[in-house]
Design a protein around this nucleic acid. Sequence first.
RNA 1: GGGCGGUUAGCUCAGUGGUAGAGCGCCUCGCUUACACCGAGGAUGUCGGGAGUUCGACCCUCUCACCGCCCA
Length: 893
Amino acid sequence: MLEKHYSPSDIESRIYQQWDDAGTFRGGRKNADGTPAEPFSIVIPPPNVTGSLHMGHALNNTLQDVLVRFERMRGKDVLWQPGTDHAGIATQSVVERQLMERQLPDRRAMGRAAFVERVWQWKEESGGTITGQLKRLGASCDWSRERFTMDEGLSRAVTKVFVDLYRQGLIYKDKRLVNWDTKLLTAISDLEVQSVETKGHLWYFRYPIKNPGKLKQKFIVVATTRPETMLGDTAVAVHPDDKRWTKYIGKMVELPLTGREIPIIADEYADPEQGSGAVKITPAHDENDFEVGRRHDLPLINIFDQHGAMNENVPEAYRGMDRFDARVRIVADLEALDLVEKIEPHLLKVPKGDRSDSIIEPWLTDQWYVDAKTLAGPAIQAVEDGRTVFVPKNWEKTYFEWMRNIKPWTISRQLWWGHQIPAWYGPDGEIFVAFNEAEAQALAEAHYGKPAELRRDEDVLDTWFSSGLWAFSTLGWPDETPELARYYPTSVLVTGFDIIFFWVARMMMLGLHFMHEVPFHTVYIHALVRDEKGQKMSKSKGNVMNPLDLIDEYGADALRFTLAAMAAQGRDIKLSANRVEGYRNFATKIWNAARFGEMNGCKSVADFDPSSAKETINRWIAGEAQRASAAVTEAIEQQRFNDAANAAYQFVWHTFCDWYVELAKPILTGASETARAETQAMFAWTFDRILALLHPFMPFITEELWQRTGEAVGGRDSMLIVAPWPELSSLEDKAADAEIAWVIEFVSEVRSVRSEMNVPPAAQVPLVISGAGDAVKARAERHRDTLARLARLSAMRFEAAPPKGAVQIVMKDAVLALPLADIIDLAAETDRLRREIDRVKGEIAKLDQKLSDEKFTARAPDHVVEENRERLANAAAAEKRLHDALKRLEAAA
RNA sequence: GGGCGGUUAGCUCAGUGGUAGAGCGCCUCGCUUACACCGAGGAUGUCGGGAGUUCGACCCUCUCACCGCCCA
C-alpha cells in the first residue's frame, strides 16, 4: 500500500543507485535484433571540478537529462558524456587564498611542483562535489566515462592540438598589448574582461608647446581619463584636417614632469569634435594608441610593473607608487604647475577581470596566440550551411557577429595550474614546440648541430583551450576509438548563451579543424535563471537559490519539472520557490492517482489492447493518451521543454485525474464485472503511459511508481528508465470524445448553476431533461450513474417541458432543469438568464455583422465561414432556449 | 553607436492571421471512501501607444515609448 504522501528523500538515492548499478546510464545500447542502435550523444558542459551546483547547472543538466532519457526510452544508443574542467584561474585562486588564510608560504615560496601538487590535492578533496550533486538532480550521465580536462588522455589531446596548430602556423608567439590582470598576474583573453560603467573624471592638461614662435597657442590641451599614463606619452595627435592645429604639426611638446619632449603628429584617430581636438598618445598602455604608435613609429614606454605600480621608466618621484596613488600625485603636481585646465565628471567604461574584479591593464608582453580568424572561416560556414543549427535560431546572429570580427585568441596564462605549454627555448631564445622534452631536444640538436640546454615555457594554456576539444577529446581523440567513430559528431549541445563565445565557438573551430566535421548538429541555447524579481542571482545580492536546498525541500523531480516547464525558448527564467512547491504538489497528485489505482484493483494487464475497449470513457481516455503522448513527443523533439511539460501536466492532472478517475469511479464500484475489469486494465495501461511520459522530467517518482505498481503483477520487465517510450496510434474515437465532452459539459453546467444558486454541496437534487432527442436521451441514460454522482442528483428524468419555477440550464441539445422552487431566488435566476441572453446576443450581433460582410464571405477560407455560420446557428438556438426559459420562469412567478 | 530580446489577468509567463490561455495568488463553498501538497465554483485583460497591410491583427509591417541583455 502506498503512503498518502510522496516523500522524495526516501527514494531518490536508492532509485539512482539502482539505475547506476544496472548500467542503464552506459552507452552502447543494441536494438532487439542485436544490431547497434541509432546513436544519440551529448557532451556535458564541463563544470569546474572544484565547483558546486548552482541553478544554472541545474537548468542546464535538467534539460540535457530530459533529452537523454527521452531518447534512451526511444531505444537509441545514448551517451551522455560527463566530466569536469580544471578552471585554471578559478581553481588556482582558491588554493592561493587557502594558503593565505592558513598563513602558509605562498605559491612562489613553495615552488611550482609543490604548489601544483597542492592543487591536485584540493581537486581530489572537492572534485567529487559537483558530480555528486548532479547525481542528486538525477542526471543520467555515463559516469564510467567521466573525464577531466587534465586527464592523461585529454592532456595528450591538448599537446597535440598545440603542436599541430603551431606547425601549421596557426599558433604563434607575439609581443602585443594584452589584458593584464595586476592581481592574478596573468594575461587574460578579451572575453574575460568585462567593461563596467563607472563614474570618473576627464582631466584636461596643458602641455607646453616648445618654441611656439608667433603661433597663437602656447599650450596644447589634451584630455584623459587616466592621468598617470601621461608619464608614458610619446606623442600628441591631432586630426590632419583640423585647421586649428595644422601649423603645429611637427612641433614638439614639453611633456610635463618628465623632461621629455614629444612630437605633435597628425593622425585620423584624433577626433576634432572632442575637446581641443588633440589627444595624448600612450602606445604602451592603450590599444588605440598602440595602433597610432605603430603607424608613426613612436617609441613604446612601459611605465607599469606587473602589479600595476610605476616602474623605473618614470621619474624617480613616482617610482614604486601604485597606479592610482600616482594618479592623485600627478594631478596635484600638474596643478601646482598650473597645467590643469579643468576637471570634468565623466562616465567611462572600466575594464575589469571577471575573476579578480581588478582593473585590467593593457600591458605589453610576449604571449601565445591562436590565429582565430583562420579557424573561424569553416566554423562560420558550417552554421551558414545549416550543418550546425542553433535553437532558438536568432543566436546564430550573435555567433556570426562575433566570429566575423574575431581577434587573435590569447591562450597563454601566467599560471601554474593547467596544461603547461609544450614549447622549449634554446639559449638564444629559439623556440622548439614539441610533443615532449625528448623531441624538443632532438629538434634543438638538429637546429644547433649539437645538444643544447633547453628551458620550458613556464606558462599554461587557457582552460578554454582544453574545453574547446571537449566534444572529441572526451571520446578518446587523438586515438581513433570506437566511441569517437560512433558518437562524433554529437547530437546536441545544451548550454547557456553566456558561453557561446567562450566555448561553443571554440569547439566549432577546433572540432572542424581536427575532426573535419562539426562537433554537434544542434546547439540548444537556454536562458539564465534569475530570481523571482528578474535579478541575476549573485552572492553579493544574497538572492541565490541553491538547487540542493530546493531538492531537499521539494524533491529533485519538482525542481526539474519546474525548470523544464519554465524553459521557454528565448526567455530568462524567473524562479520562485512557490512554483517549485506547485510541482511538488503535482508529484503528490501523481502519487495519489497511483494510490487510487492500487485501491481499486487497477493492475497492468500484459497483453491489454486499448483499442479493444468497449466503455466510452475507456475509448476516450485512450485517445486522450495518444494525443498527449504525441504532444509531449513533438515538443521534446523540438526542444520545446515548456510545451512538453505543460502538455504532460495538463493531461495528467486535468484530464486523467480530474475527469477520467471521476468518471471511472461508478464503473469501478459498479455491478458490471466486464466493465470493471476493462476499466481497471485501462486505468493501469494509461497510468503506465503517464509514468513513461513524465519520466524524462520526473525520473524518480515515476521509476518508483513503475516498480511499486509493478509489484501487483509480479514485477516489471525492465526499469522505467529503459522502458519503451509511448508511441500510440489508432486510438482516437470521435464519437467517444463527443460523448465524454457532453458528459463533462453536463456536469460542469449543473455544478456551476448549483454553486451560483447556492445549493448546498451536500444536497442531492432531482433533475429534469427536456427538449432532448433520442440520441441525447440514450447518452444521458448510459451515463446516468456518473451524471448523478458527479452532479449530485437525487433523480434524473425526461419530460416534455421543464417544470415551473425550475432553474434551467440551456445546453446545445437539451434543457436541464433543477426544480428548486422552494430554495430558488427568482430574482437572481431571472437575472442570471438575462445576463446569459445578453452575452449570447452580443455574440450573435458580432457574427451577424461578420457574415453579412460580403468581403468576408468571399475572401475568407470556406471552413472559416462555415465555422462562423455554425456558431451563429448555435448562438441563435441558445438565445431562443434562453428566452423560453426566461418566459417559463416569469410564468412561474 | 551596433545588435538581440521584452512589454498579454494581481504576480510569473505561454500563445496563434480567424471565439484571449496556464500556473501561482485572490474570493465563495466543501473533511463526497486517491489526494486539504485536495476538490467544486468564481472574479480579473483597451494583449505598451499610434499608424498601416488584411474580409479579419494579440499575431505581419512601420513608428514611438519604456525595460533588459550583448558587443563597440
